[in-house]
Amino acid sequence: MSQPRKLPVAILGTGNIGTDLLVKVLRSPVLDCRLFAGRNLSSPGMTKASLLNVPVSAKGIDSIRELRGQVELVFDATSAESHLKHAPVLAELGVTVVDLTPAQVGRMCVPAVNLADCLDQPNVNMVTCGGQASVPLAWAIAQANPGVEYIETVSSIASRSAGPATRINLDEYLLTTETGLRTFAACPHTKAILNLNPAQPCIHMQTTVMAKIRQPDLARTRERVEAMVAVIKKYVPGYQLILPPLLEGGRLVTMVRVDGLGDYLPRYAGNLDIINCAAIAFAEARAHRRQT
């Protein structure tokens, strides 16, 4: 089998997320980073990219425009506000867009659940970190139990893994995560909760999914959840089931922990790692599909 030609990609946004994504792209056998673009040439991410001999630019979206025809996929790791401006430009360029912001321009993509449905989309949105962790579990629970009345997810993350943008936009995080749960678990009532924990050493991300179910089938739920965890592990190696589904106090509860890969971000920041891993899983699937 011949190695496929690598998919030429660019990364917009040189903050912590973008820089961690860069490390993952460079490791991918099917992705080729043609440009690392942002606004601040002296940011640590830019410094790191330069040291890795990746072309960098401080001209942001304009630098992508100048590469017309040379990149086929762009990761946007800027902000929701910026993505709303970037989206039409990228659409006009005809590139596939992987949106890591909560802008919700394109279809929500959770690879373990709907990767195949997203591969033809011009713009996919990676929901939120809590969404990437909880949606597959909620989906598995819904598959195992027809009578799901209500789904709720709680994530606890290390304070230090929540940057200023996350902190000021908690409401958007909650609403986007709830939308994701509603969409994928086909459940009208959902709730998302986020806790920041300042303990040192930093806690690793933990996500719990709880559900109210008319007649829960615990055995089937366990089976489905365990199968789902195995699927996610393929693209998020640090995803672990730490509390298999159980019934307690009239609710079904299951819990996962997400250890990050520690590429650029610290390992405790599983919340940031999982969304990047999901973005890479989508991009690699696009790269493979292009070959066939």
């Binding site: 709680v154 606890s156 909760i193 806790n195 920041l196 924990n197 300042p198 933990q206 719990t208 709880m210 730490i242 509390l243 159980l246 307690e248 509860v253 819990m255």
Partner: peptide
């Protein structure tokens, strides 16, 4: 911290 009640079960 308050709000992490899910950890009780774990």
């Amino acid at each position: 911290v308050g709000g992490q009640e899910d950890i009780i079960l774990e």
